[in-house]
Computed example of a mutant assay.
Amino acid sequence: MRQSRVLRLLDRLEREPRADAVIETVRKGVQALPLGDGRDLLHGRWLGHPVHPLMVQVPIGSWLSAAVLDLCPGRSREAGLLVGVGLAAAAPAALAGWVDWAELHRRQQRVGLVHAVMNAAAVGLYTASLTSRVRGRGAAGRVYGFLGLTAVAAGGMLGGHLAYRQASGANHAEEVPYVVTQGWHRIGAVTEFPADQPVRRSVDEVSVLVVRDAGGAVHALAERCSHLAGPLSEGTVSDGCVQCPWHGSVFRLSDGWNVRGPATAPQPAFDTRIIDGHVEIRLRQGPDGQAADEAEAAQRRTGTGVHGHGS
Score class of each variant (00 low, 15 high):
V199S: 15
P59D: 03
A151S: 15
I281T: 03
L64F: 05
L41G: 08
F251W: 04
G289T: 06
V51N: 01
L221D: 08
L158S: 04
V199H: 12
G84S: 09
A120P: 02
G74Q: 13
G29W: 07
G29Q: 12
L113R: 10
A121M: 10
A102S: 15
L9T: 10
T191M: 06
L81P: 00
V218M: 07
R260H: 07
L54E: 00
C244V: 09
G44P: 07
A140T: 01
A139L: 02
L149I: 00
W46P: 01
A116C: 08
G124H: 06
E294P: 00
A122K: 03
H309E: 12
G256E: 04
R284F: 11
V111M: 01
G289K: 06
A167M: 10
G240Q: 13
G136F: 04
L221T: 07
E280T: 10
V58M: 02
R133T: 14
A173Y: 00
G148R: 11
V152E: 05
I275T: 15
R110E: 11
G183H: 09
P53G: 00
L87N: 03
R260Q: 09
Q57F: 00
V259G: 02
S168Q: 10
R165T: 07
H247K: 13
G48D: 05
L9R: 10
R282V: 01
H307A: 07
D100A: 01
E296L: 14
R186P: 02
A21P: 06
W257D: 13
L158N: 05
A122M: 06
A263R: 03
G289R: 05
V208W: 14
R284E: 14
L147H: 11
W257C: 08
G155N: 03
C241S: 13
W101F: 08
T25P: 08
Q31F: 04
H247Y: 11
L47A: 03
V6C: 06
E294K: 10
D40T: 05
G248V: 04
H161F: 08
V68Y: 13
P53S: 01
G36I: 11
L149R: 02
G305D: 13
A122D: 04
H43I: 02
L7T: 13
A121V: 14
R282Q: 10
V242K: 04
P53R: 00
A32R: 05
A151Q: 09
R142T: 12
R77W: 06
G97I: 02
R77T: 12
S4G: 15
Q243T: 15
V56G: 03
R5S: 11
S132N: 06
V203E: 03
E174L: 12
T131Y: 05
G148N: 07
V22L: 13
Y144L: 06
Y144T: 06
